[in-house]
Design a protein around this nucleic acid. Structure first.
Length: 426
RNA sequence: GGAGGAGUGCCCGAGUGGCUAAAGGGGGCGGACUGUAAAUCCGCUGGCUAUGCCUACGUUGGUUCGAAUCCAACCUCCUCCA
């Protein structure tokens, strides 16, 4: 193969395109196809770039933010993004780097998931105007194929020999875990997506997570063999903490982008709790602050770094939930952690009616997402980790009554030292 | 086609009839210490309308008072033979 890989973060010498300069500077490049060719391509004028997302859950999570940030930068620099929702591919399930088959989703569930994902995407890339980003569903073409037709037209362009060489499936095979033909063909479908987008929309670049490398390359190779097209691919790094752990999971589940799955304040808190060692890198990856400002903030030492974390949290929240929500979250953070709780908006609102018979403390913890189940809530309470209006409550049968509310109809609830909520009843 | 081995909780990995919601480690969460950081020490870590009930050791049945553990069939993987 004639593709050249670039290792993550290596400052590439004399790049011509502003696009690649920015992506490298931001730490958004893990590897790409022929660097010089991609650079020339991006420098030559506006291009169309795509990233795809399968509808495996009702919301995207922080891991998806990286390719989306890359799309945002490219859009700012005059290129046109296409976001592909995998209405078709989700029916197959990407096996890349998974050692088990994904449970197959029903079409209704996929449609619901796509609707949730779409809301986040619309905030992250600008779809307005004739030059705005495009949102397309790959079911549009994937469901149209007839089997024999597909095998003849595209199957002939792939060899099993080559397909087996990809790390994404080799690991599965070496793990001696069954890989069905259905899943194995996923890479063909994504390759066809790329080709289809190239034909329909003159899309020439695909961006994806590092686990998507194999799928992307398949598209590049298919387009070259089939249509003689020269396409390009680029992957963003895997989101990991400085301690090496995969990131995105927190107390009560993943760090979701959709506000119904994680409140904007909860999202803000996630970033506020970033480890010192990650602050600089996250500022570059997930905010759009100028690089010199990023450098200034990252240079802060010791407790002063907390200021940088607030900036990080507020900036990322603004990108995902909007400036209003970000400002509110910052205020809530200041109020809950530094005193003055009267000024801030509540982080959660529940109907007053729920208090009429007394609301179980455990139930409340689950309702605001501080515990995934009653059992988990019970353990938190029993372990002395839960405070109501500043006082530790260890009684798991405790019920909240109207009398627990402060004058403003709210109560302060905290789990541990990092998770706090201001719950309003109205 | 034949013979043998393997499949455990979020992950890795012990366990070969009751004492097993299943050792140990990782991860995660809580407590102490801090700066809402890291490191360290301690605790918790399936669900529920909860002194009990339900679900769980590849799948489905069976033996037994009782099964992750025994038997049968099936699925997937590995090794050897043809």
């Amino acid at each position: 193969m004639t593709l050249h890989l670039r290792e993550a973060g290596k400052p590439a010498a004399k790049l011509r395109s502003e696009a690649l300069q920015v992506l490298f500077e931001r730490g958004l490049v893990n590897q790409c196809t022929d660097l010089t060719a991609l650079d020339d391509h991006l420098a030559a004028g506006p291009v169309t770039v795509y990233a795809g997302f399968d509808a495996t859950a009702q919301s995207l999570h922080v891991g998806h933010l990286m390719p989306l940030m890359a799309l945002r930068w490219l859009q700012k620099l005059g290129h046109r993004p296409i976001v592909v929702l995998g209405g078709g591919t989700t029916q197959v399930g990407d096996p890349s780097f998974r050692n088990e088959t994904r449970p197959l989703l029903e079409e209704r569930q996929i449609a619901a998931n796509m609707a949730g994902i779409r809301q986040s995407i619309e905030r992250l890339v600008d779809m307005r105007g004739p030059d705005g980003a495009l949102l397309v569903d790959n079911a549009e073409w994937l469901t149209e194929f007839k089997f024999l037709e597909f095998l003849r037209d595209y199957g002939s362009k792939f060899t099993v020999n080559r397909m087996l060489t990809f790390d994404s499936v080799r690991s599965r095979i070496e793990a001696q875990s069954p890989l069905t033909v259905l899943e194995f063909c996923y890479m063909m479908l994504q390759a066809v997506d790329f080709l289809e987008l190239a034909r329909r929309h003159d899309c020439t670049v695909q961006i994806g997570g590092s686990d998507q490398w194999g799928n992307i390359i398949n598209g590049v190779e298919l387009a070259r063999k089939g249509d003689g097209l020269s396409l390009h691919g680029l992957t963003v790094p895997l989101l990991a903490t400085a301690s090496g752990a995969k990131m995105g999971k927190s107390a009560a589940g993943a760090v979701w982008l959709h506000p119904e799955h994680l409140s904007p304040f909860g999202f803000w808190q996630f970033w506020r709790n970033t480890a010192d060692a990650d602050v600089g890198r996250f500022l570059r990856l997930f905010t759009e602050l100028p690089i010199n400002e990023v450098d200034r903030l990252s240079a802060l030492k010791g407790a002063d770094l907390n200021e940088a974390k607030k900036v990080l949290a507020t900036q990322v929240t603004a990108v995902v939930h909007g400036a209003e929500q970000a400002r509110a979250a910052l205020e809530q953070g200041e109020a809950l952690f530094a005193g003055g709780r009267e000024i801030a908006d509540p982080t959660h609102t529940l109907p007053l009616a729920r208090l009429s018979d007394g609301l179980g403390l455990l139930e409340l913890l689950v309702a605001i997402g501080f515990a995934a189940s009653n059992g988990e809530a019970r353990r938190l309470v029993a372990g002395g980790g839960v405070r109501l209006n500043g006082r530790v409550i260890e009684d798991t049968h405790r019920r909240i009554k109207a009398g627990d509310l402060a004058a403003d109809d709210r109560l302060a609830l905290a789990v541990g030292k990092r998770r706090k909520a201001l719950v309003s009843f109205s």
